[in-house]
């Protein structure tokens, strides 16, 4: 293993409890740069809980989240984003009244504006150039050019997924968390989404943590998988290992099916 602990996202002993119930129990995993890492498991296994703890929407009861070697456990979402962590939303929280182009541009602009009132007020020329360049590149990559002027709220689910992805791509984040990106997509759209993510990782070397229920997507693009059940890690390995694992099969179909 060449990947040091300073590379990518690293979660150690993550525990999250709600009112005495432990949703996630002592979870540890790593999502290094340059790799697509999958986090899978049956319904209610704790995937989204883990995901929200990584992106800062949820404070863990115990354990730590480190990003590129820095402990970010106590930081809020905006601070994590400043440190290079971008996320998408399963429910595609787009800026519906803004155009596709503006949505994507905001991926970078929000990051440049930070919490500085002056930077929020006006956009320096230098920023404008870089925002434009990033937006054009993403529009091209996601093939959203024909829709650039459409309000995001008027798009189909497949296009909305791409805009959601496009926003974090424009932001130039080094670590991307993708939240169930295939929900609502048909298989052709899902495959296309997978191709774009693979290409981004190959080109930019960023890391991706994918929480997903569509196994065909997970199996085709992830290099490494972590399988959760009841908030605990039950298996870890490459897609072929996972496919062959009796434990994983049992978790998905019920114990007797194994």
């Amino acid at each position: 293993m060449t990947s040091s602990e300073h590379d990518g996202l690293r979660v150690d002993g993550l525990t999250i409890a709600f009112g005495g119930n432990t949703a996630v129990d002592g979870l540890s995993f790593a999502a290094p740069r340059g790799r697509i890492t999958g986090l899978i498991g049956p319904n209610g296994a704790g995937k989204t809980t883990t995901f929200n703890a990584c992106s800062g929407l949820l404070r863990p009861s115990a354990g730590s989240v480190r990003l590129f070697g820095t402990d970010i456990t106590g930081r809020g979402p905006a601070a994590r984003a400043q440190h290079g962590l971008g996320r998408t939303f399963q429910r595609m929280d787009l800026f519906d009244s803004l155009t596709v182009e503006q949505n994507i541009a905001l991926g970078l602009e929000a990051r440049l504006a930070r919490s500085n009132p002056l930077k929020q007020l006006r956009c320096p020329r230098r920023d404008r150039t870089s925002v434009r360049a990033a937006t054009e590149a993403v529009l091209e990559l996601c093939d959203l050019g024909p829709h650039r002027g459409d309000p995001a709220g008027s798009l189909s689910t497949g296009q909305r997924r791409l805009v959601d992805l496009g926003r974090v791509l424009a932001g130039g984040f080094d670590m991307l968390l993708l939240d169930e990106p295939s929900s609502g997509l048909d298989s052709a759209e899902t495959r296309r989404f997978g191709r774009i993510v693979t290409r981004v990782v190959a080109d930019s070397g960023c890391g991706v943590l994918l929480v997903e229920h569509d196994m065909s997507l997970v199996m085709s693009i992830c290099e490494h998988l972590y399988v959760l059940d009841f908030g605990k890690m039950i298996f870890e390995g490459d897609p072929a290992d996972v496919r062959a694992s009796d434990a994983v099969r049992a978790a998905y179909l019920g114990s007797e099916a194994a």
Partner: peptide, 28 residues
């Protein structure tokens, strides 16, 4: 599967491989 009915029948007619395919995407 994806909002469409893929199979309708009795339990005996459904084999485990078919089921796993739907759940795990092993058809590749």
């Amino acid at each position: 599967a994806r909002g469409r009915l893929e199979f309708a029948g009795e339990p005996g007619e459904l084999d485990a491989a078919q089921l796993m395919e739907k759940y795990m995407g092993t058809h590749t």
